[in-house]
C-alpha cells in the first residue's frame, strides 16, 4: 500500500527539514559564501570571488586585536574555571537537598537579563560604586580607583555573567564521579594531591572542557559587555564582527571572522568529544602511571 504524502508523519518530517534547512543550514552556507565575495557599499556584497577577506584575518593590524580579544575571553574562562571548579566540588559533597537549593540560587541570576546584569556591574564598579566604597571604607586605597573602562572591568563583567555556565556542567560531572574510586585511592595510600590529580581531575575532565567551551565561545561574542564596561579600547571579537556588519559595512570580512569563529568552535568541540571518548574507553582513569 502506498501511503499518501500528506499524512501527519510526512508533515512533521517536512516541517523539521524545512525549518532547519531554511533558517540554519542555508544561512550558514550563505555566510560562508559572503566571506569570499567582495564588499560593496551599495549592494553589501558583489562578485567577483576573492580571498581578500580571509587574507586580512592574518593582517598584523587585526591579528593584534584578535589576540587581545582572545586573551580577554581566555582569561575570563580561566577565572570562571578557578572559581567554578572548587565551587562544584564543594557542592558535590553536600547533601542532595542543599545541592538542589544552591544550584537553584546559582541559576536565578542567570535568568535575569544579562544586559541588565552588566549594567549592575557597571554601577558597582563606578567611582562611587560598591567596590570602590569597600576599597576606601576598608582603608585599602585612599581614593576611588578607576575601575571602569579597563580590561579588568570587561573580564569582571564576563565572569559575572558567565559563571553559571561553568558551574552547571562541572556539577553534572561531579555527580557522575564514583565516590568509591576516591575511597579506593585513599585506602591505597594516595594523598590529597594524588587523589585529585589522578582520580578527580581526569574523571571530571569532560565537565571542565564542556564548561570552558560554553564560557569561552559566548565570551568572545558578548559585545555589549565590553561596550558598557571596557570602553573603546578593550574590544572582544564580537565588537569587531559587529562593527564590520553595522558600522563599516564590510560584510565579507565580518563573515570571514564569523566562519573563523565557527571553525574554532568545531575544533574545541572535537577536543571535547575526544576527551569524552578517552574516558569511556579507559573505563574512567588515566593510565599514565602515578
Amino acid at each position: 500500500m502506498i501511503k499518501p504524502l500528506f499524512t501527519f508523519r510526512y508533515s512533521v518530517i517536512a516541517l523539521t527539514l524545512f525549518w532547519l534547512g531554511l533558517f540554519v543550514l542555508v544561512p550558514h552556507v550563505l555566510v560562508l559564501i559572503v566571506s569570499v565575495l567582495s564588499p560593496d557599499p551599495q549592494h553589501l556584497v558583489v562578485w567577483p570571488l576573492t580571498l581578500d577577506s580571509w587574507a586580512r584575518l592574518f593582517d598584523p593590524l587585526y591579528l593584534e586585536v584578535f589576540w587581545y580579544s582572545l586573551w580577554l575571553s581566555g582569561l575570563t574562562t580561566l577565572i570562571c574555571l578557578l572559581l567554578g571548579y572548587p565551587f562544584a566540588w564543594v557542592l558535590a559533597q553536600l547533601p542532595a537537598w542543599w545541592r538542589g537549593v544552591l544550584l537553584f540560587l546559582m541559576i536565578v541570576p542567570f535568568w535575569t537579563n544579562s544586559l541588565i546584569r552588566t549594567y549592575a556591574i557597571k554601577l558597582s564598579l563606578g567611582n562611587k560604586g560598591v567596590v570602590n566604597s569597600l576599597l576606601v571604607g576598608l582603608g585599602i586605597t585612599d581614593e576611588p580607583v578607576e575601575l571602569l573602562y579597563t580590561p579588568f572591568a570587561v573580564v569582571f563583567g564576563l565572569v559575572y555573567v558567565l559563571l553559571p555556565f561553568m558551574v552547571l556542567p562541572l556539577v553534572a560531572s561531579f555527580d557522575k564521579l564514583d565516590k568509591h574510586l576516591l575511597e579506593a585511592a585513599r585506602d591505597l595510600g594516595a594523598g590529597w594531591w594524588q587523589r585529585f590529580r589522578h582520580v578527580v581531575l581526569p574523571l571530571t575532565m569532560p565537565g571542565v572542557i564542556a564548561g570552558c567551551l560554553i564560557v569561552f565561545l559566548p565570551a568572545m561574542g558578548m559585545f555589549y559587555v565590553s561596550d558598557l564596561l571596557g570602553g573603546a579600547k578593550n574590544l572582544l571579537l564580537g565588537n569587531i564582527i559587529r562593527n564590520q556588519f553595522m558600522v563599516v559595512h564590510d560584510w565579507p570580512f565580518g563573515a570571514a571572522l564569523s566562519v573563523a569563529l565557527i571553525m574554532l568552535m568545531a575544533m574545541l568541540l572535537w577536543l571535547y568529544f575526544a576527551a569524552n571518548r578517552r574516558i569511556n574507553r579507559q573505563g574512567g582513569l588515566d593510565d599514565d602511571g602515578i
Binding site: 532547519l20 540554519v24 544561512p27 550563505l30 555566510v31 559572503v34 556588519f245 565580518g254 569563529l261
Partner: peptide, 25 residues
C-alpha cells in the same frame, strides 16, 4: 543526522555567529 546536527549547531554556536547567519539570510 543533518537535522540533529543543525539543532546542535544552534545550541552551541555563539550568539554572535547565529546573529550573522540570521541577518544574512
Amino acid at each position: 543526522g543533518t537535522a540533529s546536527g543543525m539543532l546542535f549547531v544552534v545550541m552551541m554556536s555563539p550568539d554572535i555567529v547565529l546573529a550573522i547567519t540570521f541577518l544574512v539570510v
